[in-house]
Write a protein that binds this DNA or RNA. Structure first.
Lengths: 330, 330
DNA sequence: GTGAAAGCGCTAACAG
DNA sequence: CTGTTAGCGCTTTCAC
């Protein structure tokens, strides 16, 4: 493969000059610059980023560590992170932790060996800030990690929005399908939801599961497979996937949404607006999160501990929620 | 950051010895080996993969180029590729082309600068095999690219399976929602479906769109928003997302699936089994594809041109298809 | 078996 | 403004 020396020789200049032309910053005479650029094109020279990375002691890559790429929210996040990074001339190294703390540690250690410019991490558990060297900018997204600032939607506030919505619709018998208790994001959403309800004198029935379709379906069945009078009139879930699973359970049990049951999710994944009924949910500013994350990673600043950036979620009302009255009317 | 020299000095050996210990292949005396390993642990030494990559002229990374990570099928593919790669000690560089040929070229050129061990590419169009250097193993997955072998599910055969299923159910008035005509994968699935129907003397109505929910919904509406007698009794789609969009359109128009309309998709994304009604579809062996892709990338072999590896899809019957008779009965 | 030393291809001083 | 040169941290002959 052709290297900088070949180019320099052919263009009749020194390697330093070629390097400066590529960096397009230095003061290189117009004549030489053109000649070099022509030669680069002509020889189809692709500068070796590995060598450059070695010399610069940092590569043009950012590591992205997420629990699960098949979760539409993280897929969306990855998509935007990749787009913004690419635009900034960076590549993204993808790591999937599969919600396994051991793998998470291994993945991060492995990433670090490539000396990336920055790390964007959606951690599994808040415990033990990994002792990875402070010389790689780290921005922690969506879920809290000890010793780091957090860039995320305001889980607590967003969940409160959901609670408010259900209360406003007249619901009093309300259940909540939470995420795994060891995930701080679950706790934040749950707390935001529950506290808001309790302030209104309502005590929701709470049940815990994973952030996926299957869990939503199983837990939904558990909540709904009982005498109509004992069923909640509204259920909120910790994310949209659970809500979609719940919708499926309701359908299987012949329970009409939203007439007999209101359902509200969290995330506003693309699918939320397409299933039947269209899902009412709390939308996240994913693109904005991605932009800020990449910017912080590049700036080398990360998000300082204690300096959280919490972005507001927004209530998206669609067809899975309705006034409780409708049910009595039936 | 501590480097190999620091370790060598502290352990009282030469850098060569440390290197050999890490490569865990050479013949290093047990005593020295232990001493070095202890020192590595003690100093928390993380070998610099950038330097190693420079020296080896190849990094421990594989590039993964896909059109759209929010497409559940590709997310699934990425998940498995990442898992297999990680297991083999490789990192994955993620590129998303967003179905834009210009970006695809730029992404690949950019990836190559990092001198990855191999490239796994889901190309956008079959045209112009990019003139990237033959010195990077390239395995082309899912969609054909001129000058390369293809590793993929058998689109043609899978679609024929779908056609066979609908015919067997007694459907005669059948429509097909295809993918974009410029994508070979669309053409393969469409051809497999249409040819099989025509062999049975049926000429389907065909309509084209993109591989996403929105397109499926719009096209579905177009196909269904007409007098009942003029509507197809069954619609097959080029992928599950379109099918899900179609289901939504049917629901909006008050058309019962599967009683009044049978729907069959392609891919068997996780969601397919969870929506209402559960979607009948053609399942892909994603994990197997991922395994083979990574193996080929590592082996440096790629998939030789003309040596396609076509894996069989499998018909997954769920609740979105039913005998045409049911409708007449209503 | 182990050490010494020559690069991998580039960037960034430093000269001129 | 441009050329020269010393490494970046590792692997890999080549000696011993």
């Amino acid at each position: 493969m052709v290297n900088i020396k070949d180019v320099a020789r052919r263009a009749g200049v020194s390697v330093g000059t070629v390097s400066r032309v590529m960096a397009r910053n230095e003061t290189v005479g117009a004549a030489l610059r053109e000649k070099v650029e022509a030669t680069i094109r002509e020889m189809n020279f692709k500068p070796n980023h590995v060598a450059r990375g070695l010399r610069r002691r940092r590569t043009d890559m950012i590591g992205l560590v997420i629990p699960d790429i098949t979760n539409p929210f993280f897929a969306e996040l990855a998509k935007h992170v990749e787009a913004v990074a690419f635009h900034a001339g960076l590549s993204v190294l993808l790591s999937i932790t599969n919600d396994d703390p051991k793998i998470e540690v291994a993945q991060i250690e492995s990433l670090l060996k490539s000396r990336p410019t920055g790390l964007i991490v959606v951690p599994i558990q808040s415990g033990q800030s990994q002792s990875w060297r402070g010389d790689t900018a780290t921005v922690v997204v969506d879920r809290r990690l000890q010793g780091h600032g957090l860039l995320s939607v305001d889980h607590h506030g967003g969940a409160a929005l959901a609670a408010e919505h259900l209360i406003g619709l007249g619901h009093r018998h309300i259940a909540y399908i939470a995420g795994p208790a060891d995930a701080p994001v679950s706790r934040a959403r749950r707390a935001g939801f529950v506290e808001h309800l309790e302030a209104a004198g309502i005590k929701p029935e709470i049940i815990e599961g994973h952030f996926d379709y299957v869990s939503g379906e199983a837990l939904g069945r558990q909540l709904l497979d009982r005498a109509p009078a004992k069923r909640p009139t509204a259920i909120a879930t910790a994310n949209d996937q659970q809500a979609i699973g719940l919708l499926r359970a309701a359908s299987d049990l012949g329970i009409k949404v939203p007439d007999e049951l209101s359902v509200i999710g969290f995330d506003d994944i693309p699918l939320a607006g397409l299933i039947t009924p269209r899902l009412t949910t709390i939308g996240q500013p994913v693109e904005d999160i991605a932009k800020r994350a990449v910017a912080a990673a590049i700036a080398g600043s990360g998000v300082a501990a204690g300096e959280d950036e919490l972005l507001s979620g927004v209530l998206v009302v669609r067809n899975s929620t309705a006034p409780v009255g409708r049910r009595e009317a039936v």
